[in-house]
Computed example of a mutant assay.
Amino acid sequence: MNKDKQFQPLQKQFYNQPTINLAKSLLGNILVNETAEGVTSGIIVETEAYLGAIDRAAHSFGNRRTKRTEIMYHQAGLVYTYQMHTHCLINVVGGEINQPEAILIRAIEPYTGTDLMLARRPVAKLQNLTSGPGKLTKAMGITMSDYGRAFFEPPLYIAEGMQVKQIKEGPRIGIPNSGEARDYPYRFWMEDNPFVSR
């Protein structure tokens, strides 16, 4: 990929596909955040799908419609941020309206603006900079104030990247109390990428 090219947000229609497919399709595309400090971007290398009302691991399981999950009931392609301990995590809303599904962006590979990412989140090894959902948001300056934005328009958006040929899949991480849902193979990642969370 040419780092000097102008980023082009993926069209709104890109998000109108089944959530599992969308979770795979996001891999290889570029998460971009334009802030007053500068622009940072990273190639999405790991995602996790959450299938809403029928998925015990999803925040919206059983159609729990709360202030936190409200955005999940809207159109696909919107930003769902939530707080986990001290970290802000970022998700892509999937599914149809009133079908509250989402995809967690779990890890990215730094692409542009790496110096700014390191200023926000100093690490000794570059591999540790964005290899987790809380790490990448801090490095990219993504906060709870981004809740409800659209991924198909600036300042926080997903741009066209590269096609991924080898996608691995397995159980999601960090959901031990979700019954049978903890074993669903809804985590997807780019094979052999050093920035995958584990």
Score class of each variant (00 low, 15 high):
2 N>L: 11
2 N>Q: 07
3 K>E: 13
6 Q>D: 14
6 Q>F: 00
7 F>L: 12
7 F>T: 02
8 Q>Y: 08
9 P>E: 00
10 L>G: 05
13 Q>M: 04
13 Q>L: 13
18 P>W: 08
18 P>C: 02
18 P>L: 04
22 L>A: 02
22 L>R: 02
25 S>K: 12
27 L>C: 05
28 G>T: 03
31 L>Y: 02
33 N>W: 04
34 E>G: 09
34 E>I: 10
34 E>W: 04
34 E>D: 14
36 A>G: 02
37 E>G: 01
39 V>G: 00
39 V>T: 15
40 T>I: 10
41 S>Y: 09
43 I>R: 06
44 I>Q: 02
44 I>L: 04
45 V>G: 09
47 T>R: 11
47 T>K: 07
47 T>E: 06
47 T>H: 07
48 E>L: 00
49 A>N: 10
50 Y>K: 06
53 A>W: 05
55 D>Q: 07
55 D>T: 12
56 R>A: 15
58 A>V: 03
64 R>H: 06
66 T>P: 09
67 K>I: 11
68 R>L: 08
69 T>P: 08
70 E>T: 00
71 I>Y: 01
73 Y>A: 03
75 Q>E: 15
76 A>R: 11
83 Q>K: 07
84 M>F: 05
86 T>N: 10
86 T>H: 08
88 C>R: 06
89 L>I: 13
90 I>L: 15
93 V>D: 07
95 G>Y: 04
96 E>A: 14
97 I>Y: 08
97 I>E: 11
97 I>T: 13
99 Q>S: 13
99 Q>D: 15
99 Q>E: 12
104 L>C: 03
105 I>H: 01
105 I>L: 13
106 R>V: 01
107 A>F: 03
110 P>V: 00
113 G>C: 11
115 D>G: 00
120 R>S: 07
120 R>C: 01
121 R>Q: 02
122 P>R: 02
123 V>Y: 02
126 L>C: 10
127 Q>M: 15
131 S>E: 03
133 P>F: 07
135 K>F: 02
135 K>W: 06
136 L>C: 01
139 A>T: 01
141 G>F: 06
142 I>N: 01
143 T>L: 03
145 S>Y: 02
146 D>F: 03
146 D>H: 12
150 A>S: 14
154 P>K: 04
155 P>L: 09
158 I>A: 08
158 I>N: 07
158 I>V: 09
161 G>Y: 00
162 M>H: 05
162 M>A: 13
162 M>E: 15
162 M>S: 14
163 Q>F: 04
166 Q>F: 00
166 Q>K: 13
167 I>A: 11
167 I>W: 08
169 E>Y: 05
169 E>K: 15
170 G>L: 09
171 P>S: 01
172 R>C: 06
175 I>C: 09
176 P>R: 10
177 N>P: 04
177 N>Y: 13
178 S>G: 07
179 G>W: 12
179 G>K: 11
181 A>C: 11
182 R>L: 13
183 D>G: 07
187 R>Q: 10
190 M>K: 12
191 E>L: 04
193 N>D: 13
194 P>F: 10
195 F>Q: 05
196 V>S: 11
197 S>K: 04
